[in-house]
């Protein structure tokens, strides 16, 4: 079992510049154990760069980041303290999954028996002896997660772990992260998929253009950055809308024959309709989604806007649920605001 000391990631003034481009700008945040902390930001916001600095792969231009109070590069058996999945394709194509895990285990003094264990844990038994180059992205993700779990670490980091996974795989990762956090581990997971974060994260570190925009609970973040509204449907909207506006409530056209009313709960709206003898076909309080809160906060910090005006704010269907089927987002769906020519990790890497 992993040790009992607090597993924490702490960044203080963490900065990374590539030439005159600042990828990460004086980032301060703390990732604590026992919960899933989402690292949320648009593509190119600096998420991967930050994670590479945490792992000692990239050297900060300024500031520092520690894992369990120490510089990652000073850890002697780092896989026993931090497990990370940054890039599922970062495996030698000619080496089998088993040997890939074996060499990682050996480098940290982890017994070979643990290799078989994690292979079983991620369900790769049948392909463990096959060269990695034949692996699908989903199999690669599972191998990456097996590598992250090798040393039974107290801290786990995943960079966009659901990318390229089918719904079953997404559910599996979601449950895994939940379980790891429930076991008291520190789980830090980046994503540009708000819907995914809303489902998995307890806590958020929000980044945009390299700056930390918020560090807060998911609920608090939504409450602070987006307002709820009431969806109203009625055959007499022509009469109802002016009455609502007279009360000083903001009224917006919803889809079809609906209205969106801001500034009042369902009760006063229903009372108003009843007092005027107007039938209501729907009266529903709509809680804002993480996506809406995120868009309001980062609307001006998205690095790569699509050419279509307004495309940076994807349509949110009624009900406030993000435009994603219940099974999760489609595998490998690119972020809403990235033109197709962008590489997966365009964070200032030349």
């Amino acid at each position: 079992m992993f040790g009992i000391e607090p597993h924490m990631i702490e960044a203080r003034g963490l900065t990374k510049r590539y030439g005159d481009k600042t990828a990460v700008d004086h980032a301060d945040f703390t990732v604590r154990p026992g919960r899933v902390t989402g690292f949320l930001g648009p593509n190119g916001a600096g998420k991967s760069t930050t994670m590479r600095m945490i792992l000692g792969l990239d050297r900060p231009t300024g500031g520092h980041v520690t894992v369990n109070g120490r510089d990652y590069r000073r850890l002697r058996a780092p896989l026993r303290e931090v497990g990370a999945l940054l890039d599922a394709k970062a495996v030698h194509g000619g080496r089998s999954a088993y040997h890939h895990l074996l060499c990682l285990a050996q480098s940290n003094g982890i017994p070979a028996a643990r290799v078989d264990e994690v292979i079983g844990l991620v369900g790769l038994q049948s392909v463990a002896g096959k060269p990695f180059r034949g692996f699908s992205l989903g199999m690669g993700q599972r191998l990456g997660i097996a590598a992250a779990l090798l040393g039974d670490p107290g801290t786990l980091m995943f960079d966009e772990p659901v990318n390229g996974l089918d719904p079953e795989g997404i559910l599996w990762i979601r449950n895994l992260m939940r379980r790891l956090a429930d076991e008291g581990r520190t789980v830090f997971v980046s994503s540009h998929l708000m819907s995914e974060m809303a489902l998995t994260a307890d806590h958020l570190v929000v980044i945009g253009r390299g700056r930390i925009l918020a560090e807060t609970g998911v609920r608090e973040f939504i409450d602070a950055n987006a307002t709820s509204h009431v969806r109203v449907r009625s055959p007499r909207l022509d009469r109802l809308a002016p009455l609502l506006a007279e009360r000083g409530w903001r009224v917006e056209a919803g889809d079809g024959d609906g209205l969106r009313v801001f500034g009042a709960g369902p009760a006063p709206i229903g009372d108003l309709a009843a007092a005027n003898g107007l039938a209501l076909h729907e009266l529903a309080l709509v809680q804002p989604s993480l996506e809406e809160a995120f868009m309001q906060l980062t609307g001006d910090t998205v690095e790569y806007h699509a050419g279509v005006p307004g495309a940076a704010a994807p349509a949110v269907p009624p009900g406030g649920q993000p435009a994603v089927p219940p099974g999760g987002p489609p595998g490998g769906a690119p972020g809403p605001a990235v033109p197709p020519s962008q590489p997966p990790n365009p964070e200032g890497r030349p």
């Binding site: 009992i4 058996a77 026993r80 030698h92 040997h99 060499c103 003094g109």
Partner: peptide
């Protein structure tokens, strides 16, 4: 509390050597 990095220093280079040997013979 002990962690892996409080473990004795000796052996770490040997571990890295073992891993590199695995790597060179498995491609």
């Amino acid at each position: 509390p002990t962690t892996a990095s409080d473990a004795p220093r000796h052996g770490t280079f040997g571990q890295t050597l073992t891993a590199e040997w695995t790597k060179i013979r498995t491609v």
